[in-house]
Design a protein around this nucleic acid. Structure first.
Length: 313
DNA sequence: AACACAAGCAACCGCTGCTGG
DNA sequence: TCCAGCAGCGGTTGCTTGTGT
């Protein structure tokens, strides 16, 4: 039996809330891992219509997937600009710091790491960071206890048992921007869309049969030009990058971190050079438009705005 | 080589909040 | 103001892969 079928069998029936059910095609809906062919169909559709109206995607594309599954697949896997693979120490520090501020609000945390998805961050937190933090906190406690003992010996302990000396910090403080982590813009990295490269292979097979007379591309692949004829004029609400960002191999180029998914990459605009302040907290918690409104109405001095990561850019 | 166990991660589930009629 | 539909979010599940015995 195919792996997807097995997975589907185990995952149970389609829930009643899903729009696909109301259309009466519950039994036809596919579950489990996505096939490259399905990815290809979804990417094609989104680059034509934009990443909206998910409800219409199954009907318009013929995909036997529910709208939620399509949206999830796009946002977590196919969306341009997603960085996959190991998290850098800097990203770890950002996540730890933001988690200390925001808790399990993965989407909010992900909005400050535009190249990572909330699902990715959540998984990374649950599988790596949580364990690391347990170790670090134990060290912290031990060090703090030792500091209290040492301070007590010197008579420098207040009523709460807090020493006046600095205790070990949970967060690394090698940041030149004063965020509690190094918030410098990430170095450009190749837009490695391994997942989408699967699509290339699939499409390469299609095109091979369609135009076997075509000469090979310079990079050695059988693809000579993008199979999507899309550009920035697509009808999406959020402008999509050129298809060459999505499937760099198709354009015969490797792009360096140009993704601009739903998060817009605003965090990696030039960061401010001040401590995490009320401005920062405001910025972290409020949606961008509300925050900017607040900044223009209530605020602030040009200096304050100049230190705000989204206002001053 | 075969098995058991653990870790990682993609995908699903169900709830919440927003939006438009 | 209410309600239905929809998108988004966070928690959970279970498959795949790696590692140890």
């Amino acid at each position: 039996m195919e792996q997807g079928d097995d997975h589907r069998r185990k995952m149970g029936s389609r829930p009643p809330w899903c729009a696909c059910d109301r259309a009466g095609n519950t039994a036809a809906m596919k579950k489990g891992p996505w096939m490259p062919e399905e990815d290809l169909v979804l990417v094609s559709y989104i680059h034509e219509h934009g990443p909206t109206k998910w409800r219409h995607v199954p009907a318009s594309t013929g995909l036997m997937r529910c709208s939620k599954s399509c949206r999830l697949r796009w946002t977590n896997y196919l969306r341009p600009g997603i960085r996959r693979g190991n998290f850098t120490p800097r990203e770890e520090r950002v996540i730890v710091h933001l988690h200390s501020l925001l808790g399990n609000r993965w989407a909010a945390i992900a909005s400050h790491l535009p190249q990572r998805t909330d699902n990715d961050i959540k998984n990374y937190w649950n599988t790596h960071l949580k364990k690391k933090l347990v170790v670090v906190e134990e060290q912290h406690r031990a060090a703090a206890a030792a500091a209290i003992v040492a301070a007590a010996a010197r008579g420098h302990v207040d009523d709460d048992g807090v020493t006046t000396s600095s205790s070990p910090r949970l967060l690394a403080k090698d940041d030149s921007y004063g965020y509690g982590y190094d918030a410098r813009p990430a170095a450009a990295y190749p837009c490695s869309m391994d997942n989408v490269s699967k699509l290339v292979k699939v499409k390469a097979g299609c095109m091979k049969s369609a135009s076997s007379s075509s000469p090979p591309a310079q990079d050695g692949s059988s693809i000579r030009r993008p199979f999507f004829s899309l550009d920035q004029t697509s009808r999406s609400t959020a402008p999509l990058p050129p298809i060459s960002n999505v499937v760099p191999q198709l354009a015969g180029t490797v792009l360096a971190g140009q993704g601009q998914g739903r998060h817009g990459g605003r965090f990696f605009h030039e960061p401010p050079q001040q401590q995490l302040s009320s401005i920062m907290e405001n910025w972290l918690f409020l949606p961008k438009h509300q925050h900017q409104q607040q900044m223009t109405q209530s605020s602030p001095t040009p200096t304050a705005a100049a230190h705000c990561p989204c206002c001053f850019s």
